[in-house]
Design a protein around this nucleic acid. Structure first.
Lengths: 232, 232
DNA sequence: CGGCATCCGGGAAGATACTG
DNA sequence: CAGTATCTTCCCGGATGCCG
């Protein structure tokens, strides 16, 4: 009888703050490094393992594996196999997982005031689209009704603006009034960096198809909050 | 000439997600373990090092030191010396730091739906009072106007309810309509655990001074969101 | 006593290579 | 493509000790 090494997957009692405060429990669930960013990337629909890796530059495969396991154990996302002929593994937020969006909005709104925030860093398509939901100024969008498409990489997203509110989804762009085709950072440069559309088009970073004056209005709808006063 | 070992405090280029997304930058600032909980404890006013240690069971002194340094470097809090005769070091959020409260509300509201959330764990006074701001149901508080005091340990807090809204501060309790004296978890048991006030008073965990029917109404003002449906 | 530096052990994160 | 295996590095947590 050989001495057998049993690797019983003792499911490591996750480290907890042992605090009844709801925020503390949230951190028990999603406070580990990369966890919230994995969730963010799924906010507009399911993705595959390698999509997540590509959209989260810097995450390593084993950390991504661990986070997906942990988030699935907590009921925040599920592993699902798409029906044939796709038959591919994807990760998808549960309904409760989708309810986490206000967390990202609160974090994003607050951190946008940081003097160290650098909007010129890389940015994923999902981050950009979610930021539209967060930053839309209802005043400036008043009376506007438009369907605006985004072609980023080989995904397409549709934003519907209806009197002061905006909705965003991965979707086809058939009847959009306007389509931007560009990388996410290029669109961010127009919306948040104040770069003129003409300049971005001239350097080939972005193209606008459709209602051009609507495009010029759209990029003004998302004012950033003022940076904090620096004492240094 | 002796060879001198210079330990120039190279201020460790903090690990960053290198991501333009506002939420990602927020995590660069406050994503380290304990950082948000330190901020939470300061949301109702400045505290000393040892108060923070006491209110954050489990944090170690060196981690607290590191977090306070990091948060101060980021402009989220400041070290301040109270004027004589107190002459004591305290840590206080900056105006921008105080603006982080919506983050705690979003986290708390979301995590309260987790099946693993256990409201009977230890709870700090600040957590409890902030949770009132988060969870008040404006419907149930409609038409109510009251000043409700809390004596927790040797601190006192005052909540002012004015038609559907609540404000909370560390304050004296002179003209409160009602004062609860208890530990934070005992008050939480009444408000969130549904324990009857009479039972808690009977076991000596809590006392009510003043308008008793107001007390019974107050503890009903903060309904918890429904837990998520469990597939297990 | 309050605040902070230092050392140490364990564990989580990061990088790289490898496998079905 | 979707992960595992392995190794290294760094962070967290605990203990001790210094110094005002």
């Amino acid at each position: 009888m050989k001495s057998q090494k049993i690797t019983l997957r003792e499911p490591h009692p996750r480290r907890s703050y042992e605090d009844a405060c709801g925020a503390a429990h949230a951190l028990d669930l999603v406070g580990e490094r990369w966890a919230l960013l994995v969730m963010r990337e799924l906010l507009l629909g399911p993705k595959r393992f390698s999509d997540l890796r590509a959209d989260l530059p810097g995450i390593s495969a084993n950390v991504l594996t661990q986070r997906l396991e942990g988030l699935a154990d907590s009921g925040i996302l599920v592993r699902r196999k798409l029906p044939p002929p796709a038959s591919v593994q994807v990760y998808e937020l549960t309904p409760w997982g989708y309810e986490s969006e206000p967390i990202f909005q609160a974090l994003g709104r607050w951190a946008a005031r940081s003097p160290e925030h650098d909007p010129s860093l890389p940015l994923s398509a999902v981050s950009l689209l979610i930021s539209f939901r967060t930053m839309l100024d209802p005043q400036r969008a008043r009376g506007l009704r438009a369907r605006i498409g985004f072609r980023i990489g080989d995904e397409s997203y549709l934003a519907r603006v209806v009197d002061g509110r905006i909705d965003v989804a991965r979707d086809e762009l058939e009847d959009a009034d306007l389509v931007f085709a560009a990388s996410a950072p290029a669109i961010a440069a127009a919306v948040y960096g104040g770069r003129p559309l003409d300049a971005l088009e001239a350097e080939g970073a972005l193209t606008v198809k459709g209602n051009r004056s609507l495009a010029k209005r759209f990029v003004k709808l998302f004012p950033l909050p003022p940076k904090i006063a620096q004492s240094t």
